[in-house]
Design a protein around this nucleic acid. Structure first.
Length: 661
DNA sequence: ACCGTGGAGGGT
DNA sequence: CCCTCCACGGTC
């Protein structure tokens, strides 16, 4: 069996005795051993001692190359090719790795040029023995009963709540889910809360007797889904070991079949999974930072393919990846018509081409164009005003007062910043005070604010609107919700409190658009759209940016799908994902050269670089998508040769990396 | 990390 | 001709 293979899934729920279905009585266990070595990424056979309960999916300890190593039983078989098998020890007969998740993990590893063991570390939480032994969560909570779930009556065709997905032509989607089919859609959500529509889709699927998985970027969104869908079980990373394992067991034991969570929950062993919802797939929190760096959207896609479940990929913005799924016809669009958009979208106005700002005295000294000022004053009569500021802190970036070059720390080269009002300028990285600073370009010793953060903005606004309460939300002080009363709410992207805003102001747009990343425009629009979505219908939204920019126009017209299609066309022309498959390989030059030497690339592959990387250098390898699997297999095989030969130096392989530098 | 294998080299 | 040591590759 090669690395790419896994035992064929056995049909469960057949009514056959467990031993027939799982092979529990067979003497040989095929084990996924956590060796950490790329060339050993395949199952190994072990003997199951007589009378030992070692069902597929349980944790085991096995002797591997002389040491005790962790692993999972993948399947039980009658015989082994291998002449002498060592016996395995069962850690616990609890099944924590279902056949479906084992196959999913294998396909994620194959997609991302990684090892099964690496993916399993992401997929299965650490064991907590007391929790496992405790009276079963499964016994305490009866299995989710579709008929008892609130909103289950929505499964009757034509009986969905009127506001569900009708604005998007989504009635057919819901009926299809409720009827047990598996439709796939990309949903361009209108402004306003998306959670009730997600809840309706989830319940439609539950009504068909299947499980549901809802994936959101962070714990705040988990809480918001839970308030719309209180019968769901939450799985987020910040739970702590015992709670995390308890809920995981509730899912794996089939007690919880409606799951909401953050990216690691993409692997949750939901029984008979019918639907995966991914909300705001452009948020980089969906990208796993540990090897092999899978993205929750891609895991969801692989699940949809492997388990035949439905997919709902939604957001106020649409990614180029979403547009690509539509372009290929693999998913259907759930998009509102222009009439519905006009009814609920805010009135977005771009203010602040460079020429406009140059003429505007108010903008020059206070960073606020006159129109922003007037709009905020007007809106504050009827409710809160949201001000989005891309940078955290007080003054996170100082610059030379004469030539505007960014000021750098003399010690470590980090950016000089003002940590608070009246504070001494100091390095934002090493914290050393910037005593005796002078500009490296022009020798001036005077500093000015380069980038302004949310706290300084709050201070400026507080002075500009005396008597109006100012709320700041960002960094580690995030406010969840604000009342509908007048207030200035200054927030960094992603930290905006929920609220019914009378106006939304998007400041310093240049900061987002100027980032040296191919996804900068898509990401800027996503952040603006998420803030603008909190505005009341037809409330003013001001974006301080040049109206000629495509991302700004897309916001003004509230046309996220159009922008995503344009992004996709651009990436296709430039040869970047999702139009192609792209691998980034980072490492020291010698290690990269060695890897290249072992690499047998598919025919149409193209090697770019090396270019400088955070660590050493970076090679980019590009193939058509049709050769994506071959590219990943080639990279994994080359990494295997390196690990087998114990070649020195570390390399990092990222397939379709989240950041396209 | 450990262990088995096999080739080289030097001793019987 | 045999024994030992070390390097290398596989690891069930």
């Amino acid at each position: 069996m090669t690395a790419g293979e896994l035992p064929v899934a056995r049909v469960t729920g057949t009514g056959l005795p467990a031993a027939r279905v799982t092979g529990t009585g067979l003497p040989v266990a095929r084990v996924a051993v956590d060796t950490g070595l790329a060339h050993l990424d395949r199952p190994f056979d072990y003997a199951v001692p007589d009378g030992v309960d070692a069902p597929p999916g349980c944790r085991v300890r096995v002797r591997f190359a002389g040491r005790l190593t962790d692993g999972y039983v993948l399947e039980r078989v009658a015989t082994s090719e291998h002449p002498r098998l060592s016996p395995l020890k069962v850690v616990s007969p609890e099944v924590v790795l279902t056949v479906e998740v084992a196959r999913l993990a294998r396909s994620v590893a194959d997609r991302y040029a990684g090892s099964l063991a690496d993916v399993l570390r992401l997929a299965v939480p650490p064991r907590h023995a007391r929790t496992e032994a405790a009276p079963s969560a499964a016994a305490a909570t009866p299995p989710a009963d579709a008929a008892a779930a609130p909103g289950a009556d929505a499964a009757e065709p034509g009986a969905f709540p009127p506001d569900a997905l009708d604005a998007y032509g989504g009635r057919g989607y819901l009926e299809s889910l409720a009827a047990g089919r598996s439709p796939r859609a990309v949903w361009a959500a209108l402004p306003g809360s998306p959670w009730s529509a997600i809840a309706v889709a989830a319940r439609a699927c539950v009504a068909s007797g299947r499980g549901v998985l809802v994936l959101v970027p962070d714990a705040r969104d988990v809480a918001r889904v839970l308030s719309a869908l209180p019968e769901a079980t939450a799985l987020q990373a910040d739970l702590g070991p015992a709670a995390r394992y308890r809920r995981f067991l509730a899912v794996s034991r089939g007690a919880a079949r409606l799951v909401v969570g953050t990216r690691a929950a993409a692997f949750a062993p939901v029984r008979d999974l019918g639907l995966v919802v991914v909300w705001d797939d452009g948020d980089d929190l969906h990208a796993e930072p540990r090897a092999p760096y899978p993205h929750a959207r891609e895991v969801a896609l692989l699940r949809s393919l492997g388990e035949g479940c439905a997919l709902l990929l939604g957001g106020h913005a649409v990614t180029a990846e979403g547009a690509s799924l539509l372009a290929s016809g693999w998913a259907h669009p759930l998009v509102a018509d222009r009439g519905a958009v006009r009814a609920v979208a805010p009135r977005v106005v771009a203010t602040g081409s460079d020429a406009e700002l140059a003429r505007d005295e108010a903008a020059r000294f206070a960073r606020l164009p006159t129109l922003v000022w007037r709009t905020a004053r007007e809106a504050l009569r009827s409710g809160p005003v949201l001000v989005q500021v891309p940078r955290r802190g007080y003054v996170p970036g100082l610059a030379c007062a004469r030539c505007r070059t960014a000021a750098r720390c003399g010690h470590c080269g980090g950016p000089l910043a003002l940590p608070a009002a009246g504070a001494v300028p100091a390095c934002g990285w090493c914290g050393r005070p910037a005593a005796g600073w002078h500009c490296g370009e022009c020798r001036s010793d005077r500093l000015r604010a380069g980038a302004v953060g949310e706290r300084r903005t709050a201070e400026e606004l507080g002075r500009a609107f005396p008597g109006v309460p100012v709320v700041t939300s960002g960094g580690d002080a995030v406010v969840d919700e604000v009342p509908a009363t007048p207030a200035l709410v200054v927030a960094t992207p992603g930290a905006e409190p929920i609220g019914a805003y009378a106006a939304v102001v998007l400041l310093d747009a240049w900061t987002l658009l100027g980032r040296p990343d191919l996804r900068a425009a898509e990401e800027a629009l996503r952040r603006w759209a998420n803030a603008a979505a909190l505005a009341r219908p037809q409330a003013p939204v001001l974006v301080v940016a040049d109206a000629g920019l495509a991302a700004v126009q897309a916001l003004v017209r509230w046309d996220p799908l159009g922008h995503a299609e344009r992004e996709l066309a651009e990436r296709t022309a430039l040869g970047f994902p999702p139009a192609v498959r792209l691998a980034a390989v980072d490492g020291e030059p010698a290690a990269l050269q060695a890897l290249l030497g072992h690499l047998t690339l598919p025919p149409a592959a193209e090697v770019l670089g090396p270019v400088p990387a955070p660590v050493g250098e970076r090679l980019l390898i590009r193939t058509p998508r049709s050769e994506g699997a071959a590219l990943a297999a080639a990279l994994h095989a080359a990494a295997g040769i390196r690990s087998a030969r114990k070649e020195p130096g570390a390399i990092r392989i990222q397939v379709d990396p989240a950041v396209l530098g």
